[in-house]
Design a protein around this nucleic acid. Structure first.
Length: 653
DNA sequence: TGTAGAAGGACCC
DNA sequence: CTCCAGGGTCCTTCTTAT
């Protein structure tokens, strides 16, 4: 029940009828599969609470004293890391997507609106928020909360453009700023402020704004009164005005600079930003929420003031403490950071070491102040999709193929390969299963990923027998990534070198490819002849492209990179596919495709209406090959995957 | 006994 | 009537291999 409720803790959603909103949400969702799953999770959470309570009753006074002793050491250690010397800023655009849509269509300004569809809302404007309509809420519930709610389809290119404009402004002040997402970034303004102070006021910038361009948002920024600066220098804020032009300039304190940045953002994008200023990222982040929207807040840079600031803070305001942690903490009567500190001995005895350190640092107002965009390296890359229920293998493989294509393209663009593949499946009951396989080598080949992933899927279908595996989502993720220099064409090894490489680390793979290769050449000998010298090949699988225009563009794109485009026809479904010689093994992909074709119910086969291709001699030939394909060893040698192959022996439906 | 790997979650935007 | 995303990171727990 509790988890279905409205999350009103983060943004300023005070003063709305929470009871009513929660009732509407509950009514809208009750009895649904989603709701049932939430109940299941709720039960799990309750069990967790029960375990925590049981643990709690066993805690002795002596243990608490010992804990405090150890905590003292942790605290001292943490205290040495406290650093008040840097000006860290968190910039957060207000209702970013919604604000952009309103900017571009002012008629939306006075209406409750949300960006997204009936599926899911990405964000809502402040009018809609008063009805309880929020990001990450499905549209149909939004509509119930607020029948007049207007939906606007997301336009990510537009948001990226606005984000780029904002980032360009941030970069003027801290070229190393770190963006968290399209609408959020951290900056370290320490160096910038030093420079500005030295050259002030001779170098200060004056903005001229035509009076009629001064919007309410701008005036709000200009009229914010900055508190006196610590070093006694008055903040400089000179807004001289004449009839048509307003001259505006800002001082050299951190507050002034932040107002200047917000002013520039607003002038450039017509959007508003909020900012938080603190000595570390945690505090800056909390502060940026303080005066939202179009406001800023700075916590005072002394240990005492920081601790005082933290004490009154509800735990849920801290980034990293979500619904579940909040609830667990509530069980030991902790709802704000004062209590978090006062009960640190209980935390120590009930939570893990990592959590204890985290909570303690939070209570003390200590956090990282490292801001850098330089050494960010992604750790995983994934692609997932929700769809209407599917349960046939053929349907699943089609989804899987698309996901792998998508992911492989993305990985190639970023020039990365991965060694750990994870398949994510969500059943229609919203249960999530993740199965991962460690590969022997790094890859970003569609074929290889599809081969592994499809086996995982087969295996999962078997594992839940006699139940049918009914899916609503599928996802593929690659992790344990390796980056490649753009000129390193390791991917373009010749076929020979490719096999040699396999010789070294995976002899089974070689037989796999050879086997596949033989069977393929048997079918399409005439088309292949001198193509057998092909490098690793990228396949563009027309079969899975739903519309031909997509195929057209695929072919066009493919031919850009390679003039040696070839078309090959699948012997089962008579669809052709296009390949070019520059990447992964098209052979294995073709086999997978044939595999898929054979598993498809008759109605799925486009060309069989007048011709039973499976029953034909051609079909039988393919069937044989398919069995060979099935006997291929996985490229992983992983034990789990091994089981898949064994399981497959009694698979054939 | 210490370490990866695997599965599941919490959280964030 | 329609009926809860997709892209990430990090942490915990359990199992396995050596």
């Amino acid at each position: 029940m509790a988890r279905m409720g409205l999350n009103d803790s983060k943004a300023g959603m005070t003063g709305l009828d929470k009871q009513k909103i929660n009732r509407i949400i509950l009514e809208a969702t009750k009895g649904s599969r989603f709701y049932n799953n939430e109940m299941r999770k709720e039960k799990q959470a309750t069990e967790r609470v029960t375990r925590l309570k049981a643990k709690l009753t066993k805690i002795t006074q002596a243990q608490r004293l010992a804990a405090l002793d150890e905590l003292k050491r942790m605290e001292n250690q943490l205290e040495t890391t406290r650093d008040l010397s840097r000006f860290i800023v968190h910039v957060d655009m207000d209702a970013f997507y919604a604000a952009i849509e309103i900017r571009d269509n002012p008629s939306l300004a006075d209406k409750p609106m949300a960006v997204g569809g009936t599926g899911m809302m990405l964000t809502s404007n402040y009018i809609a928020r008063r009805y309880g309509v929020r990001a990450a809420m499905p549209g149909f519930i939004g509509k119930r909360l607020c029948p007049d709610l207007v939906f606007v389809k997301p336009n990510s290119a537009k948001y990226a453009q606005a984000s780029k404009e904002v980032r360009a402004i941030l970069a003027e002040y801290d070229p190393n700023f770190a963006s968290v997402s399209l609408d959020e970034a951290y900056m370290d303004l320490t160096e910038y402020l030093e420079g500005r102070k030295c050259t002030f006021p001779s170098s200060h910038v004056e903005f001229t704004v035509p009076q009629q361009d001064l919007t309410e948002d701008m005036l709000k920024i200009l009229n914010e009164v900055a508190p006196p600066t610590v070093d006694g220098v008055d903040s400089y804020n000179n807004c001289s005005s004449n009839s048509s032009i307003r001259k505006v300039s800002f001082g050299h304190t951190i507050e002034d600079v932040m107002r200047e940045i917000r002013f520039k953002i607003n002038r450039k994008t017509k959007l508003t930003a909020s900012a938080g200023i603190g000595p570390n990222k945690m505090l800056a982040k909390i502060c940026s929420d303080w005066k939202k929207p179009n406001g800023q807040f700075k916590v005072e840079f002394t240990r005492d003031k920081i601790i005082e600031f933290m004490r009154q803070l509800p735990t849920r305001k801290i980034s990293g403490i979500g619904k579940v942690s909040e609830r667990l903490l509530n069980e030991i009567e902790i709802s704000n950071c004062k209590e978090l500190y006062d009960k640190r001995d209980l935390i120590y005895l009930l939570f893990s070491n990592v959590s204890t350190k985290f909570f303690l640092a939070v209570a003390m107002g200590i956090g990282s102040n490292e801001v850098s965009s330089k050494n960010y390296q992604r750790k995983s890359i994934s692609c997932e999709r929700t769809f209407g229920e599917i349960s046939r293998l053929a349907d699943m493989l089609v989804k899987c193929q698309k996901l792998c294509d998508n992911l492989a393209n993305h990985m190639k663009k970023e020039n990365i390969t991965g060694r750990c593949l994870t398949v994510k499946l969500k059943t229609v009951a919203f249960e999530v299963k993740q199965r991962s396989v460690s590969l022997k080598h790094h890859t970003n080949s569609t074929t290889e990923m599809f081969n592994i992933a499809s086996e995982v899927i087969r295996s999962e279908r078997l594992a839940c027998q006699p139940e049918r595996l009914r899916l609503r989502l599928m996802g593929i993720k690659m992790s344990t990534l390796k980056r490649h220099e753009s000129d390193e064409k390791s991917i373009q090894d010749t076929l020979t070198r490719y096999f040699n490489k396999y010789d070294e680390n995976c002899s089974q793979s070689q037989s796999t490819i050879n086997e596949a290769s033989k069977s393929f050449i048997n079918i399409e000998q005439h088309k292949l002849d001198e193509k057998s010298k092909l490098d690793k090949v990228t396949c563009y699988f027309s079969k899975y492209d739903e519309n031909s225009s997509q195929l057209q563009s695929t072919m066009k794109e493919a031919s850009k990179n390679c003039d040696n485009m070839e078309k090959v026809t699948c012997p089962v479904c008579d669809q052709f596919y296009v390949y070019k010689s520059d990447e992964t093994s098209w052979l294995a992909l073709l086999n997978s495709h044939i595999d898929t074709c054979l598993q498809q119910p008759e109605t799925m086969k486009p060309s069989q209406s007048h011709n039973d291709s499976v029953g034909s001699s051609k079909g039988k030939g393919v069937k044989r090959r398919k069995l060979q394909h099935n006997r291929m060893q996985p490229t992983t040698g992983n034990k789990t995957l091994h089981n898949f192959w064994q399981a497959k022996d009694n698979t054939h439906q």
